[in-house]
Each structure stands twice: as C-alpha cells, then as structure tokens.
Amino acid sequence: MVTVEDCSKKRIVKEIKVDLDKCIGCRACEMACSGFHAVPKFSSTNPARSRIRVIVEDRKDVYVPVRAGDYTPAECNGRNTYVINGKEYSECSFCTASCPARDLFKAPDSGLPLRCDMCADDPTLPVPMCVQVCRSDTLTYVEREEESREEVTYDEVESGLESLANRYGIDKVADLVARISRTKS
C-alpha cells in the first residue's frame, strides 16, 4: 500500500499469538467475545457475532482461531492451499477479512462487518476476553513497543476528502486544496 509519511514515534503493538497445536476446539473464545461485545455487556452470546471464530475441520485435525480484520468488498481471485506438517489448510482458514466469499465476521442481522478491537474499553482490559478464557494457551496476549512510522494511507485521505466534498460541495473543497497547496509549496 502506498503511504504518506507523517512522523516517527513509538507505539504499543498489541498482538495475540495463536498456537494451533494447543487448540481443543472448545470455542470459549467465541462465547466470551460475543458476550463482551453485546449491548448491554454480556447480555447475550452468539458465535455468529464473535470477532474471533475457530475454523474447525475436525476430521482433518484443522483448528484455527481467526480474529476479524478489515472488511473487503471483493473476494480473492485465486486462493492458495497450504500444507503444513502434512495438514492441508485453505487460505481462508487464516484470512481475517470480512468478505463476500463467506459469512464470517458479519453481524447476523445487518450484515455489517465485524472487526476485532482487542476489547478496547474504558478502562481498557489488561487482556482481551478471548485470551482470558482460553485456558489451553492457544491464544496468548503480547504487548510490545515498536518504532513506527505513523502512516496515513491514501485511502484515508481519499475518504476524508470525499466526505468533505459531500458535505460542502466539490468546488469548495477544490478551492481549499488549491489554497493550501499554494501556502505549503
């Protein structure tokens, strides 16, 4: 992805490590996640609303917990099959996307995409819910500091401009951009 460089600084990277060999397929992570994100909190559970799903093909010994990532409007035009330790995994088993090819990570009623927010809450949970209930240690939570280049993507610039254009009209926005570009150059 093309990026626009802004500035460099440290940031906390939150990561959930997944050890596929340890998963017992209990799907407690789905229960805890959907409960936590219910409104009011814990008022209901529903794996279909969970932002983590365990992809299970039990006769092939495939157990893969996957967290919901970004929404994508298109499905892949080609998919890979991975063989790891003699077991065959479809690329979809590892893919975090909410996409048209499958019903994962879409709210059951509205169809709106679901995305893992690492249980961002007020106050923030020390450990995300799915990790808290995963006693087999398939999921472990890691926080580390990372030098990062704060990135602004063209996508974000574009959608920002688009919403400004929708609100104020494209002419006004074009004038504004022209004026700013004169002062910056």
């Binding site: 409960g35 219910a38 009011p40 909190k41 814990f42 008022s43 209901s44 559970t45 529903n46 279909a48 609303r49 019903d103 059951p108």
Partner: peptide
C-alpha cells in the same frame, strides 16, 4: 445452523 442471540437475565452478575 443458528446465528441468533441467546439472552441472559443478569448479564454482569452471570459473567
């Protein structure tokens, strides 16, 4: 196959 919510009476207390 089901994709509906199952509700509980006392959410916080049950959790």
């Amino acid at each position: 196959r089901g994709t509906k919510d199952v509700n509980v009476a006392q959410p916080k207390e049950l959790a």
